[in-house]
């Protein structure tokens, strides 16, 4: 486990400055799975929401003199520290493409999805929404070495498909 990166924003706050830029800068320099230890002059409530949206949980503790320490930990630390594996969709990164094929007439969704996948790097993920289960697409995805996972939404009307691009031949 890597040690947490420490960022003390108390000097910025005491000078009447805005520490948000510094915090975001620190986030960028975090190694995968690394936590951020933030020290501030107050309990930074607004920041918790922002960090949650970036996938961080927090643990805030009061320090002597009214200061606060907050440790932001990446929620999916385990997932980020292991490489994305085709057989485990939990490890796939967020989709970089979104393709709405729900209004297309078959077999257009198949052509569109395969065309988009051709332009993607190995490991990148495509999310697609379809009107029905694309059963004839699956053999072609398999033949090209792509991995996929899909299911119907709760109403059973739209089929949600995630495809992780495989290695180029």
């Amino acid at each position: 486990m890597t040690t947490a990166l420490e960022l003390d924003v108390r000097p910025i706050l005491r000078d009447g400055g805005e520490p948000f830029g510094a915090i975001m800068g620190a986030l960028k320099s975090l190694a995968p799975g690394q936590s951020l230890r933030l020290i501030a002059t107050f309990r930074p409530e607004p920041l918790f929401k922002v960090m949650a949206s970036k996938g961080f949980g927090y643990e805030a503790t009061p320090l002597d003199g009214g200061d606060w320490q907050v440790i932001f930990t990446p929620q999916n630390a385990a997932a980020q520290s292991t490489p994305s594996s085709p057989s485990d969709p939990e490890t796939w990164p967020d989709p970089i493409h979104y393709l709405d094929c729900s209004e297309m007439e078959p077999p257009e969704p198949m052509v569109q999805i395969l065309t988009r996948l051709e332009a993607m790097e190995e490991g990148q993920v495509l999310f697609s929404l379809l009107g029905r289960e694309p059963v004839f697409l699956f053999p072609e995805l398999q033949a090209r070495g792509h991995a996929w996972v899909g299911d119907f939404d709760a109403e059973g009307e739209a089929y949600r498909l995630m495809v992780r691009a495989g290695q180029k031949p």
């Binding site: 077999p107 198949m110 999805i113 065309t115 988009r116 996948l117 051709e118 053999p139 072609e140 033949a143």
Partner: peptide
């Protein structure tokens, strides 16, 4: 449709193909 799949599915996305 089966003929189109058999002949053109492997080319889909890699070059322009005819419609069914």
């Amino acid at each position: 449709f089966l003929t189109w799949l058999e002949c053109f599915a492997p080319l889909m996305g890699r070059m322009a193909i005819p419609r069914v």
